[in-house]
Computed example of a mutant assay.
Amino acid sequence: MSRFAYVNGRFVRHGEAVVPIEDRGYQLADGVYEVWAVFDGKLADAEGHFARLWRSLDALRIAHPMSQASLTMVLREAVRRNKVKEGLCYLQITRGVAKRDHAFPNPAVPPAIVVTAKSLDRSAAEAKAAKGASVISVPENRWGRCDIKSIGLLPNVLAKQAARERGALEAWFVDDMGLVTEGASSNAWIIDAEGALRTRDTNANILRGVTRSTLLEVIRETGLPFSEKPFTIAEAQAAKEAFITGAGSLVTPITQIDGVKLGDGQPGPVAIGLRRSYMERARLKAV
């Protein structure tokens, strides 16, 4: 099946899509991105992703390329043209195309925008979640504004590769105080030895995960004890359960951390239940 991409105002065949060589995203990583999970051909957690997109653009002083209503139409059309029922929709906005210079173009240029969509095998993802996944820890070496969803992801790339080489799904960054910040492409959670659900607070300049926010709504409704309290790798290894959240991973149980099995090495009931509850809510609210 042919795939299609939206590039700066028009849809083109995916294999023929190009961006100018002086796009500041290509040369300077001067841009932001968002990824929507797609359920039943609809965008999950749409409002949360848009809110974070506008916040990231404003933080980097990149102009909004179009209204939210217009952008929603583009995203939906990308999903439709690519016949995606279950999958992901990717959006990237850069400062635009201009002669290479570190400072902003003067006069300003129009932002550049790319949208793609792809299908995923949800049954395969469910099988992986049912089995559980492992994570490794790596030193936190990213810039101090990880709350901005920037396309400058080289530390994340290296962390993911380190995880891949050790047979793990994800890498958790650990700061200079020995506390887990977040994963290379996800938020990190544990259910500690006392049975309390914990994840890092966003004041630590971690990414304000949209899946994280939706899951917090579910958690509050269930009445599970919860705190935005950081934890160490040792605490995570001694935890009853652990899991990660993100648009790609949704809610994925973690059964091994740095080679240490959690409990009996099987996904815990709370993580499994939260995955189910999150997906039910996300499908219901998808647009």
Results as ranks from 00 to 15, higher is better:
Leu169Asp: 00
Lys149Asp: 02
Ala98His: 02
Val135Leu: 00
Leu158Tyr: 11
Arg100Leu: 12
Val114Trp: 06
Pro111Asp: 11
Gln161Ser: 10
Arg95Leu: 07
Leu169Lys: 04
Glu126Cys: 04
Glu165Trp: 14
Ala171Cys: 06
Ala103His: 13
Ala103Leu: 09
Ala127Thr: 04
Tyr90Gly: 01
Ala103Asp: 08
Val138Lys: 06
Lys128Val: 12
Gln92Phe: 06
Arg164Val: 13
Pro107Tyr: 01
Glu140Arg: 02
Phe104Gln: 08
Pro110Leu: 00
Cys146Trp: 00
Leu120Tyr: 09
Trp172Asp: 06
Ala112Arg: 04
Glu140Asn: 06
Trp172Thr: 01
Pro105Asn: 04
Ala117Val: 09
Gly144Phe: 12
Leu88Pro: 05
Asn156Pro: 03
Val114Cys: 12
Ala117Glu: 02
Ala124Ile: 11
Ala168Gly: 02
Val97Arg: 02
Gly152Asn: 15
Ile113Glu: 11
Asp175Gly: 11
Phe173Met: 07
Gly132Gln: 03
Glu140Val: 00
Met177Lys: 14
Lys149Glu: 01
Lys99Ala: 12
Ala129Arg: 15
Val115Gln: 08
Cys146Lys: 03
Asn106Asp: 13
Glu140Met: 14
Phe173Lys: 08
Tyr90Leu: 09
Lys99Asn: 08
Val109Asp: 12
Lys131Ser: 11
Trp143Cys: 01
Ala98Leu: 06
Ala163Ser: 10
Lys149Met: 03
Asp101His: 13
Asp147Pro: 11
Ile136Leu: 00
Ala168Cys: 05
Cys146Ser: 04
Ala124Asp: 08
Ser134Leu: 00
Arg95Asp: 06
Leu158Phe: 15
Thr94Asp: 10
Gly167Ser: 08
Ala127Val: 05
Leu154Pro: 01
Trp143Ile: 01
Leu91Glu: 06
Val174Glu: 03
Gly132Asn: 05
Arg142Pro: 10
Cys89Asp: 00
Asn141Ile: 13
Val157Phe: 10
Ile136Gln: 03
Ile151Pro: 00
Val114Pro: 10
Leu154Asp: 07
Ala130Glu: 13
Trp143Arg: 08
Asp147Val: 01
Gly152Trp: 03
Leu158Ser: 12
Ala171Thr: 06
Leu91Asp: 08
Leu169Phe: 13
Ile151Ala: 02
Glu126Arg: 13
Ala159Lys: 01
Ala117Asp: 02
Val138Met: 02
Cys89Tyr: 02
Arg95Asn: 07
Gly167Tyr: 04
Asp176Trp: 14
Arg142Ala: 07
Tyr90Thr: 02
Arg95Lys: 10
Gly132Tyr: 10
Asn141Tyr: 02
Gly96Glu: 04
Ala159Gly: 14
Val138Gln: 01
Ala98Met: 02
Arg122Ala: 13
Val157Cys: 15
